[in-house]
Design a protein around this nucleic acid. Sequence first.
DNA 1: TGTTCCTGTGAAGAACTGTTCATATGACCG
DNA 2: CGGTCATATGAACAGTTCTTCACAGGAACA
Lengths: 136, 136
Amino acid sequence: MNSSSQEQVTALEGCATRVVDADRVAVVSSRMPAETDLVDTADIFGLLSDPGRLRLLLALLDGELCVCDLSVVTGLSESATSHALRLLRAHRVVAVRRAGRMAYYRLDDAHVRMLLDLALAHTEHTQAIHPERKES
Amino acid sequence: MNSSSQEQVTALEGCATRVVDADRVAVVSSRMPAETDLVDTADIFGLLSDPGRLRLLLALLDGELCVCDLSVVTGLSESATSHALRLLRAHRVVAVRRAGRMAYYRLDDAHVRMLLDLALAHTEHTQAIHPERKES
DNA sequence: TGTTCCTGTGAAGAACTGTTCATATGACCG
DNA sequence: CGGTCATATGAACAGTTCTTCACAGGAACA
């Protein structure tokens, strides 16, 4: 398969490391998304990587809730809830509707909603396999 | 952590924080996954939240690659690549096949594969629709 | 056998994250 | 008005994370 050149370096990076499967490296490299998209995507995953924020977003799956209710549902302090919502807001993952002194947050990102649905489906699936959980 | 008296949050109407929409709080709370599942899920998202690991996993989407090739594709040093793979291995996200002194890694988690596919589809989609994006 | 090559690992340090405390803002109530 | 309530924000701090450096182990190869 690699009879011609075994340590050929692709013109993509000009790096000094050796390459074993140059063809696959070329294909995979060409399919790699742009740095900006990668960072954005990693950022989104990072927002979902905290149990508190995850609870927050799962709570918003079927509609808006105010900050204090979110605080109760997630078990976070109201300050921590507000900080988390601020972060999610900055990334356009949630949106806010203000009514008087209340602030009602809702999920505002279809992509994140899909990720959450997928994650939820997965936990329910594994729950069906490991039936050691109690009812609520 | 000493939430001695407020451990039970299930008593929705008796908690210290005020509740605005008690019904929705009850529904949402009952649908909230168990803490273990939440932490596991957040953990998975955390593994995807680093651009380097994301590149690594995307590179493995269509088949196995050895460490040095992964290092080239991702732009990480070989040591960093090995550390990242070790972490992913510990979480059963990737699996390894050894041949001589080479180590070939492959994606070994169907759930993570779905998440990656979804993320990839989204970057391609948003690239087609929103050519530019802002942040505040 | 000794050497080179690929990978794995521990330690260390810089950078980042998430929480809490204290306080601020602006809306409502009396 | 003054006071309270819901939320927002800044600073600080403990804990975590990611990278690099140095080196170790085992397989190939002379």
